[in-house]
Simulated scan of single mutants.
Amino acid sequence: MDTKSQLINTATALFQQKGYKSVGLNEILKACNVTKGALYHHFPNGKEELLIACLHDLNEAITTDIKTIFKENLSIREAIRSMIDKLVHDFESDGTLSGYTFSSMVSEMATVSEPVRNACSALYENIQHIFYEKLVTEGFSSESASEMALLMTASIEGAMMLCRTQKSTDPLKTVAKLIPNLLKSF
């Protein structure tokens, strides 16, 4: 793995585990076994630029994963169930949802930094768009698909945050049970 990728992967994991503000550059450098010069070579503007790179990397990984799940499942109900089942499995086996959640970074930094807010917003928009497209292909009106995609995104992201705070997969399991019922009512 090249140095830039190593910095992004390590920083992403640390930011998700501890929060952006709790992770110092020295901790990232030590975990990567690289110098400050190497970090500033790849990220001349420092830690915030590294965070934005982490968010872009998460955006790509998460949207690719969701798109794959949605292509493999014919209906929105099956796709959502499969996506949430994957999250539950990951949480139960790893004790975390680190690959999917970035809400801790959003809550810490989105009001402080416009570039970070924009990177976070882009990820949420991508997730909603994937949901939206699947809903439209199943016959939902554009307006209903847009509303439901927002509700699904907020519900799943909120459930992931609750899973982390409660150390339980129950919130995700509840959302997995309720979303199909909501889809029927739209």
Rank of each mutant, 00 (worst) to 15 (best):
K4D: 03
K4M: 10
S5H: 09
A11R: 01
A13H: 09
Q17T: 13
G19D: 06
K21H: 13
K21G: 13
S22L: 11
V23I: 12
A31K: 02
K36T: 09
H41A: 11
H42C: 07
F43K: 00
P44Y: 02
P44I: 03
G46F: 07
L50C: 05
A53D: 05
H56C: 09
N59M: 08
A61H: 13
T68D: 13
F70W: 07
E72W: 01
I76P: 07
E78F: 02
A79H: 07
I80N: 09
M83P: 00
I84R: 04
L87M: 15
F91Y: 12
S93L: 10
S93E: 15
G95C: 06
T96G: 06
S103E: 12
M105A: 10
M105K: 00
A110C: 09
V112I: 14
S113P: 11
P115E: 02
V116D: 08
A119Q: 06
C120G: 08
S121R: 13
E125P: 01
N126I: 03
N126P: 04
H129A: 08
G139N: 05
F140V: 01
S141C: 04
S142W: 07
S144I: 06
S144F: 05
A145C: 05
M152V: 15
A154T: 13
S155G: 09
L162Q: 15
C163I: 01
C163F: 03
T165C: 09
Q166G: 08
Q166N: 14
K167F: 04
K167T: 10
L172C: 02
V175Q: 04
A176I: 01
K177G: 09
L178K: 13
L178A: 12
P180V: 04
N181S: 14
L183E: 00
S185E: 14
F186G: 11
